[in-house]
């Protein structure tokens, strides 16, 4: 009988290995979560589509279509914000905490701008549109998306503050928090683009 010690795969330093495994788990977990949660957004798109086919025309008669101008600006802001988030992560990987903070700050500002436009759009849906599912699904989708954007923005703010503290104290920064938050923000952007296309372009 060969000894157990001989046959066993030499583990790396157990602490290292645990940390590595944890990161691997976090990443996979995040991916699965995103694949899962995007299904809710798909569900809302299905809602939009099924309801639009119960009307003879879309937007329904007597309803003026939404003007895509402002939402397009918002979309651009959100995309730009995602790019900045990505650059912030890259800065952090290069150990430039101040660059990270700068990017992150700007990204949050753009995020707020996006949300401001969306609030405006949400609030100014015409009564005529609201009387139909055209307006109702628009509010459903933008509102639902907004809740997510708000929550993730709060997390970004929290990460940003932690980053500030860390810069002062010089402790190593927890990179998973940044990575995870960034991925959630990409998710918000991706989900928005789906909604944006469905709401403003696909007629």
């Amino acid at each position: 009988m060969t000894s157990y010690v001989e046959r066993r795969v030499k583990p790396k330093l157990s602490l290292d290995r645990d940390a590595e495994l944890r990161l691997k788990n976090n990443r996979l977990g995040m991916n699965i979560f995103q694949a899962s949660w995007i299904m809710v957004f798909f569900a809302m798109i299905v809602v939009n589509w099924q309801l639009r086919y119960s009307y003879a025309q879309w937007p329904p008669a007597g309803v003026t279509p939404f003007d895509p101008l402002l939402p397009s600006i918002a979309t651009l802001a959100l995309l730009l914000s995602s790019v900045l988030v990505r650059r912030g992560r890259q800065s952090l990987q290069a150990d430039e905490v101040s660059g990270f903070l700068a990017c992150w700050r700007l990204a949050m500002a753009l995020g707020v701008a996006f949300m401001a436009i969306i609030i405006y759009e949400f609030a100014t849906v015409s009564q005529a549109a609201l009387a139909t599912q055209y307006g109702a699904t628009m509010r459903l989708m933008t509102g639902f998306h907004f809740v997510h954007a708000l929550a993730i923005l709060a997390v970004m703010l929290w990460v940003y503050r932690a980053g500030l503290n860390d810069m002062r104290s010089g402790r190593p920064y927890n990179s998973w928090a940044v990575e995870g938050t960034a991925k959630l923000w990409y998710f918000v952007s991706f989900a928005w683009i789906l909604f944006y296309l469905v709401l403003y372009w696909i007629r």
């Binding site: 899962s36 809710v40 569900a43 809602v47 309801l51 109702a136 459903l140 639902f144």
Partner: peptide, 21 residues
Amino acid sequence: TPFLAGALTLLLLDRVAGTTF
């Protein structure tokens, strides 16, 4: 399950927020 979440969200909105999905 996210579809259940979507469906229940609509149901709740219809019940408490006056939507008519």
